[in-house]
C-alpha cells in the first residue's frame, strides 16, 4: 500500500464516515423523537400515521431505500440529491424508525404517578411531556441508543455503494490499485471497531450525566468484559430494539 492512496483517500474517508454517522444520527434522533412521541398521542389519526411510518421504514431495507433515493428519485422527481445526502437520508429515516420504538418504550416506562402528578399540577400536555416525561425517560433511552448508534455506524458502510468516498469506498479503491485485499480490509474492520468503541465510551459519559441529572446513580459496571463490551443494556432477547431492527 502506498502512502499517497492512504493520505488522499483513506484519511478523508474516515472523516466522511464520521460525518455521515453524525448527520444521519441527527436525522434519526429527530425522527425518533417525533415519531416516538406521536405514537403515544391521544389522537388516533396521529398514532395511525406515525404507526404507518414506523411499519414502512422498519420493514424497508436501508440499502434498497438508498438505491431508490439515488437512482429512482432523480428520474421520478426530476431533481437529484447529492450522493452523500441520499445516503444520510436513507440511513436517518430507517434508523429513526427503530429509534422511535426506543423513545416510545422509554416514555411508556415512566411511572404513571409522574404523569398524574403533572395533571394534578395543571400542566398542559406539552409541558408534561417536556418537563416531566422526557427528562425522566431520557437516561433510559441512552443504552439502547448506544446500540442503535453502533448499528448506524455499521450502516454507513453502505454509502460506499452509491459512490460516497467513505472508509469502505477507499478500501475498495486501494484493493483495486494495489491488488492486495487482505491488509486493507483487515485494517478497516479494526477502524470500524475502534469507532464503535469510541461511540460506546461517549455514550457512557452521556449516560452518567443524564442519570445524575435526574438524581440516579450510574450503573456499576462489572468485570473487565463488561467494561470492554460495546453493547449496553439488558439482553437483546428481552425485546430491546436491535439492528436490523427487530420487533
Amino acid at each position: 500500500m502506498t502512502w499517497g492512496l492512504w493520505n488522499n483517500w483513506m484519511l478523508p474517508g474516515i472523516w466522511i464516515t464520521i460525518q455521515v454517522t453524525l448527520y444521519s444520527a441527527a436525522i434519526a434522533l429527530a425522527v425518533s423523537f417525533t415519531i416516538g412521541t406521536a405514537r403515544t398521542s391521544r389522537l388516533w389519526i396521529v398514532r395511525f400515521l406515525s404507526g404507518i411510518y414506523f411499519e414502512l421504514f422498519r420493514g424497508a431495507s436501508a440499502l434498497v431505500l438508498m438505491f431508490w433515493l439515488f437512482f429512482a428519485l432523480p428520474i421520478a422527481a426530476g431533481w437529484q440529491l447529492v450522493p452523500m445526502w441520499a445516503g444520510v437520508l436513507a440511513l436517518g429515516l430507517t434508523y429513526g424508525a427503530y429509534g422511535s420504538e426506543i423513545v416510545r418504550g422509554a416514555l411508556a416506562a415512566v411511572p404513571t404517578a409522574q404523569r398524574e402528578a403533572g395533571i394534578a399540577l395543571n400542566f398542559t400536555k406539552l409541558q408534561r411531556l417536556v418537563r416531566i416525561e422526557l427528562p425522566q425517560a431520557w437516561p433510559e433511552m441512552i443504552p439502547p441508543f448506544n446500540n442503535l448508534a453502533i448499528e448506524l455506524l455499521k450502516g454507513t458502510a453502505l454509502v460506499s455503494v452509491i459512490s460516497v468516498a467513505d472508509i469502505t469506498f477507499s478500501a475498495n479503491l486501494i484493493r483495486f490499485t494495489t491488488t492486495e485485499s487482505a491488509p486493507i480490509y483487515s485494517i478497516i474492520l479494526v477502524m470500524y471497531f475502534v469507532l464503535a468503541f469510541l461511540i460506546t465510551r461517549g455514550m457512557r459519559v452521556l449516560e452518567r450525566h443524564a442519570k445524575a441529572g435526574v438524581g440516579k446513580a450510574p450503573e456499576r459496571s462489572g468485570g473487565l468484559w463488561s467494561k470492554l463490551s460495546l453493547r449496553r443494556g439488558r439482553s437483546e432477547a428481552a425485546g430491546a430494539i436491535t439492528a436490523g431492527g427487530a420487533r
Binding site: 453502533i150 450502516g155 453502505l158 469502505t168 478500501a171 480490509y185 474492520l189 470500524y192 471497531f193 468503541f197
Partner: peptide
C-alpha cells in the same frame, strides 16, 4: 469466543462480505 463475536457484531456486514469475497479466496 467473546472477543471474536464482539468484533464481528460491531463491524459492518458489508465489509465482512468484501473480506470473505476478496480475501478468503487468497
Amino acid at each position: 469466543v467473546n472477543a471474536v463475536t464482539e468484533f464481528i457484531r460491531n463491524t459492518p456486514l458489508l465489509v465482512q462480505l468484501f473480506f470473505l469475497f476478496y480475501v478468503v479466496p487468497e
